[in-house]
Write a protein that binds this DNA or RNA. Structure first.
Lengths: 147, 147
DNA sequence: AATCAAATCAGGAATAATTCCTGAAAGGGG
DNA sequence: CCCCTTTCAGGAATTATTCCTGATTTGATT
């Protein structure tokens, strides 16, 4: 039997690995949209026919608390989820609401400015760029000339 | 875009000035919290006893579309409102959820980075700093030493 | 493999947040 | 003042999210 296993260095709360949770995480990682809980459920209910919406909500919450996914507050108030927990930023189209990942780094200048203004340091900086995506910009200009 | 400004494209849709809308705007400007629609209603229903929640929602929406106030997507999904429509940024406490205004300017570098990464320009940049406010930082450290 | 306790599940009811609808009342121009 | 439009209150309807319950699954242990 196992020899001396003095101290399990894992204070991580023992969680069961379940099919539902695993698939939710996997699917989130495989999409680059930023779905709501409802969209996540709709996408998975086909292969897990009795996946319940409550289960989706509960597991998204668990995954967020484990730092495996990210919660992104979105315009209009709904919560969306992001399968990529590494810090990154977003371009949000004001026309169609699409959210695009932007893998750029926040300038160190920002942290300095915060410290100067408030004497606080930030554990995380989130930058949202608002504008029109290519498609919506085209629509807007054609609508303009049409009026 | 035509150079001749033949017709005023947006004659600023004539809006009635109503007591309810005026008070909602005035109250929002006078507070530095970032209240939800519900909180706004609760604060004003005392002096306007038959102000309805629906009216608050409708007027907040109107004020946002007029650019007089700002909609702030907040963690947890609720929409909050900000009486200061001038671009500014926020420090959000991860402990208590408080939202503090930060009147600092986004570095021009950010717009350049966006253009380089996506070829898009942003009509607006929103920066959220996440961390612990002074109070919550104290609580956290005392809790830590107590364990 | 059989057993057991804890975690998780599905499903639905309950709650919260927001929008929509209706008829009544108030603003504003003439 | 009169007419037309906008806004109003109130409540019903819709949507988003959380909570509850008893059944099922998981991982560990025999």
């Amino acid at each position: 039997m196992p020899a001396v296993k003095s101290a399990p260095p894992e204070p991580a709360p023992r969680r069961h690995q379940t099919r539902q949770r695993a698939r939710i995480l996997e699917w989130l990682r495989g999409t680059d949209s930023h779905p709501t809980a409802l969209l996540t459920h709709e996408a998975l209910v086909r292969e897990l026919p009795n996946l319940s919406l409550g289960t989706v909500y509960r597991n998204l919450e668990v995954l967020v608390s484990e730092g495996l996914i990210d919660e992104v507050p979105s315009a209009g108030g709904g919560v969306r989820y992001d399968g990529n927990p590494k810090p990154h930023h977003h371009f949000i189209c004001e026309g169609c609401g699409a959210i695009d990942d932007l893998h750029l780094q926040a300038p160190a200048e920002l942290a300095r400015k915060l410290r100067r203004a408030r004497g606080r340091s930030a554990r995380r900086i989130r930058i949202d760029f608002y504008g029109l995506c290519e498609t919506c910009e085209l629509h807007a200009s054609t609508a303009e000339t049409a009026s």
